[in-house]
Structure formats: C-alpha cells, structure tokens
Computed example of a mutant assay.
Amino acid sequence: MPWLQAHLEVEKSRAPLVELLFEQLGALSVTLADARDQPMLEPPPGAMPLWRNTRVTGLFDGGTDADHLRARIDEALNRENSRRLTLEILEDQAWERAWLDHFQPMRFGTGLWICPTGCPLDEPDATLIHLDPGLAFGTGTHPTTALCLEWLDGANLTDRTVIDFGCGSGILAIAALKLGAARAVAVDHDPQALMATRSNAERNGVLERLETLSSEEFRPQQADVVLANILANVLIELAPLIRSLVRPGGDLVLSGILRNQAEDVAHAYDADVDLHPPVHRDEWVRLEGRRR
C-alpha cells in the first residue's frame, strides 16, 4: 500500500504547532528538517533549537483523502502558511513497523510505562501500557502527551470517571483506566482515532470499561477528570463545553498549548476553574485545575 507524505515549510516559531497539527490529523510520524540549508551550531545544554525556516513532514496512510487533509490544514492555519503545503505519494514500505523498531519503552512520572506491543520490560511494579500507535496521534513521544501522562501518574484515579476529549490513540484514557479509573469515555472526530483507541484498549485489557464516541455522537456528561490534549485555538473555542464536562470538585487537564498561548487558554477557563501555575515541557504547557 502506498503512503501519503505532506510537507509544509514554516518559520521556526510555527513548527511545533504544525507538528502537533499533523499528528492530530492522523500522521503516523512527523519529522522536522532544515528547509533552507541553514547551518546549525552546537546548541547550549537543554536547548532544542529549530532552523529559521523549518520543513515539517508528516507521513499519512495512503488511503487518506488528500483534499480532505488539505482542507483540514487550511481550517487550522492561515492561507499564507497552508498554501505552501505539498503532498506526494510514497511507494509501499513497512513504515509503521520500522518506526516501532525505534520506539523504546518510556517512563512517565514514577511508575507509568508505555511500551511497543511485545516489548519486554523488567519493571515488576510498573503500570504498563502496550501500544501500537496505528494511524492516530498519541504515543507519549510528543511533549503534550507526556505532560498529560505525567499528571495521570501522580493523580489518585481510583474509582473515578474520566473523559478523554480528543483521544487520538486513546493513550490517556487507557492510562487512566490502568491506573484505577472506574470508567472512561474517549471522544474524537476522526474515525481512525476511535478505531485505534478501541484496538489499544482491547490490547491492554480495559475495553469493557471504555466507551468510544465520535464528536457527533457525544452528548455532554460530567466526569471526575476531563483531559483535553488538543490545539489551543480549539481549547478556547470549546471552553464552555469542556468546562461543563467537569463535575464540581473535579479535575481538568489541558494540553496542546504553546507557552505564548497559555495566558489566553487560561483566561477561557478561569471563570469556574481554579488553575494551578502552568507546567512546562520544551515549548509546550500543561494547564490543570479544579472546578469550583
């Protein structure tokens, strides 16, 4: 089966946003590269510099509708950026298996581990999630997902209910269930994401406690914990809905937010959520709080 590859050249300040966008649109992998042959000097410790002009490349399933993908990118970005999008067809290769060969076990917090299916892990006290990403976003490798997993590892989830709003591969809902949550609802607009979520939930033995719903099927309900790892502009647009999903006294966790977007997102939620100071990872931010 062939594959569809999308390339978009952007200024470096926009690259993290486009990286997350491609992954949330179903990219199997996303890579960043120099678009203009700019020399890169050795960065200082802890720095993660990008080229001034960065090419973001996303690899998508060959069955992806190219016109639909272009339209979705147009919706999320202004035309000045999206008009530089190029799409190409790649011949069949075992891209997913090759990617998984480089996907090593990862720990989040003190005891939560994400591992490729079939990969052994000598951690007897670990909470272990076996994951094949399929064609949906969410393996733990992206900072936004890692921020949410770290929060889950430190939370008391025993017998609580969870909504994973924008579930991608279902990794957050599955992690919550494996950490003691009684029930989870995973919501996404992408049918491939819901398929990947159900497959991963079955692989991890939690499918019977998980409900998957498309955005059109979902009817607002309240939960003890609401997780929303989606783009900042969507978090702001849907703030009234997402806030309403958290029961009074419940926890709200928001991610997919760049540092310079955190204040605007926080302002959309602080009317009835007591937010803690932002937690940072690279260029990304997690906001968390408790509904009054």
Results as ranks from 00 to 15, higher is better:
L231A: 10
V253G: 03
H267S: 08
V253S: 01
W284P: 02
N229V: 12
H280P: 02
H280N: 09
A268H: 09
I230M: 08
N229G: 03
P248I: 11
L254I: 12
R281Q: 13
V279M: 07
I257D: 01
A271D: 15
L231V: 12
D274M: 12
E237G: 01
L241Y: 06
H276I: 06
D272A: 03
L241N: 08
E237A: 13
D264V: 10
L238F: 13
L231I: 14
S255K: 00
V234G: 00
D270F: 14
D274Y: 15
G256P: 01
P277I: 14
A266I: 08
P277Q: 08
I230D: 04
H276F: 13
R259G: 09
A266W: 12
D251A: 14
I230Q: 03
V265F: 08
L241F: 10
A262W: 05
R281C: 07
H276P: 00
N260T: 10
D282N: 12
H276E: 15
R243T: 11
P240H: 13
P277M: 12
L245R: 03
A268P: 00
L238T: 04
H276L: 15
D274R: 09
Y269V: 07
D282S: 11
N229T: 09
A262Y: 08
A232F: 14
I236M: 07
S244E: 06
V273T: 11
D264R: 13
L258N: 01
D264Y: 11
I257N: 00
L241C: 04
G249A: 05
A232S: 09
P277D: 10
G256E: 01
L258E: 09
E263S: 11
R247C: 04
D251R: 09
D274T: 13
V253F: 08
P248C: 04
P240C: 07
G256L: 02
